[in-house]
Design a protein around this nucleic acid. Structure first.
Lengths: 324, 324
DNA sequence: TTGAAAGCGCTAACAC
DNA sequence: GTGTTAGCGCTTTCAA
């Protein structure tokens, strides 16, 4: 391997000078700069990132933990985060947790070991004690972890209300909402309360169906949909995560229930999946790009020592579709 | 930062002994092992990955380059690759290229700089010269890069035939296939030829619509669908990538064309998106899990010095759906 | 403006 | 079995 010393030798300068040239630091005379650049070119020298990392005590790597990378919501989030981090000079390492027992734990240990400078944590973990006493940069994505960890999330309160208001003019009699597991501590849980509150005030019956914390497979959603129609045959409105609503549309079609005539549907999240079917699904849209921007911004500024300011919930919007 | 020396000092042993204990290497007496472990615990010492990397000249990090992380096909691929790499003790770094001008170039440079040990390259790059003379471990995912780079891909020849055979019994008169840009050098291109061949042999007219190399947004596919129905009003069969077929279903529905009665649809890829709509889309399914497994296997064995054996195309399957 | 030298924290060859 | 020592390749004072 050709190292900085080889370059120095060939250019007849000191390694430190080569370092200065390569990093555009300090003052280097035009003539030595040229010499160094020539030597670099001649040897086609490429500096070692590992050595640099050790010396600087930095990796410029940020880890992103999510329950399931391939889920449209997280996939889009990761895409956006990766772009934002790249802009700021950081690399993105990913980790999907639902398929791997305690990968989250392993990942957090990597943070300790300085494999990365910080992490954006969005997994649906149930064991939060692994974060206790950790002083490394961590930003939570739509998750409560502990008091020291700032959290980036959408304004789920408005989200719940927005969804409820979408149903209101249609005077549904019986709405069922599908929700994730309550045991997962996420600010997203408030949207259910806001939803129920707004609708029950208006006199609508609302029932709730809770899913498992690790349900991400389309199969899981299909089962839930079947279950829902069996348990509540008179349902005329459903509110739930994108994929759950997709499954409900399928099952409704199979049972001859017409959407939106006999059944109103509103999805929560509003990922692209609500826009690729035959009907556009009416949905509360989480601002994934904005969330990703904030997550990237907060984690990198923490890595650089700047304390994170308080974060206000990011605004959600309603996507007018064909299903409600 | 507490280092291996501090542990050694506290345990009254040499740093190398601590290293042996930590890495479960060589022979260490039970008694000194205990001493070391106690010291580690007392100092809550965590070894530095950066120092280890430099010393071992290894990062245990694999980069995965794709055009678009959030696309269902790539999102699923990355999920599977990440799981497979994790099993083998590697971390996964991702890079999405369509949004970032020459990120691919930057990424390949990271390989040179030893930021990662190897990369799995699946981007739709048009400039392949950046790979010339690169001797680092690279495995191409469904892309031709150059002679030295092994390639993991599905059996697209069978894929094209399988799709054609799905149409055959329905005796379509005019089938249109939507394809990616020909300028992207991918083994996937053969499926179009196999498709046309099989159908024209049977006397069916087949037209082809080519999309831009960087088309990944649902919007792009919707435009293509509109264009298709305008240009070929008599079309009664469409073959194309999952998202293109989704868009065609939407546009067909808007125009009152019934699927499958008046229009047969077959998708290529068969990602989960073909399974979340009201109708299951008939599709040729690429074995994403298998592809990911092979990609992970080949890149890690190359990193470990074992030469990659030749790879045979991985088998595809047909998903019987409601659309053909 | 440049060079010498001391790390960064770990591993591994080689003695003992 | 365990310790000594010399790196891995870079950055960064501090002198000159």
């Amino acid at each position: 391997m050709t190292s900085i010393k080889d370059v120095a030798k060939l250019a007849k300068v000191a390694p430190s000078t080569v370092s200065l040239v390569l990093n555009h630091k300090g003052y280097v005379s035009e003539i030595t700069r040229k010499k160094v650049e020539e030597a670099v070119a001649k040897l086609s020298y490429v500096p070692s990132e590992m050595a640099r990392n050790l010396s600087l005590n930095r990796t410029n790597m940020i880890g992103v933990i999510v329950p399931e990378i391939s889920h449209p919501f997280f996939a889009t989030f990761i895409r956006e985060v990766e772009v934002e981090l790249y802009r700021r000079g950081y690399k993105t390492m990913v980790c999907s947790t639902v398929q791997k027992a305690n990968a989250e734990h392993a990942f957090v240990n990597m943070l300790r070991r300085q494999t990365m400078d910080g992490i954006i944590m969005g997994a649906h973990s149930l064991e939060l004690d692994i974060y206790d006493g950790l002083s490394h940069p961590i930003v939570a994505f739509d998750r409560f972890i502990n008091e020291n960890i700032p959290i980036v999330h959408a304004d789920h309160q408005s989200g719940g209300r927005l969804a409820a208001k979408a149903f209101l003019p249609h005077r549904c009699h019986h709405i069922v909402q599908i929700m994730g597991a309550r045991e997962v501590l996420t600010p997203a849980n408030v949207h259910h309360e806001a939803f129920i509150e707004t609708l029950t005030e208006a006199g609508t019956r609302v029932d709730t169906l809770e899913m498992a914390w690790n349900a991400f497979d389309p199969i899981d959603f299909l089962q839930t949909a079947e279950q829902l129609f069996n348990k509540y045959p008179d349902v005329d409105g459903i509110f739930g995560p994108d994929l759950a609503i997709c499954s409900c549309m399928r099952v409704a079609a199979q049972r001859g229930i017409h959407v939106p005539e006999n059944l109103k549907l509103v999805a929560y999240d509003g990922t692209y999946i609500t826009r690729v079917g035959q009907q556009v699904i009416t949905a509360v849209v989480q601002p994934i790009g904005h969330l990703a921007y904030m997550a990237a911004e907060k984690i990198t500024s923490w890595v650089n020592g700047r304390p994170g300011e308080k974060l206000y919930a990011l605004p959600v919007t309603l996507q007018k579709g064909d299903t409600c």
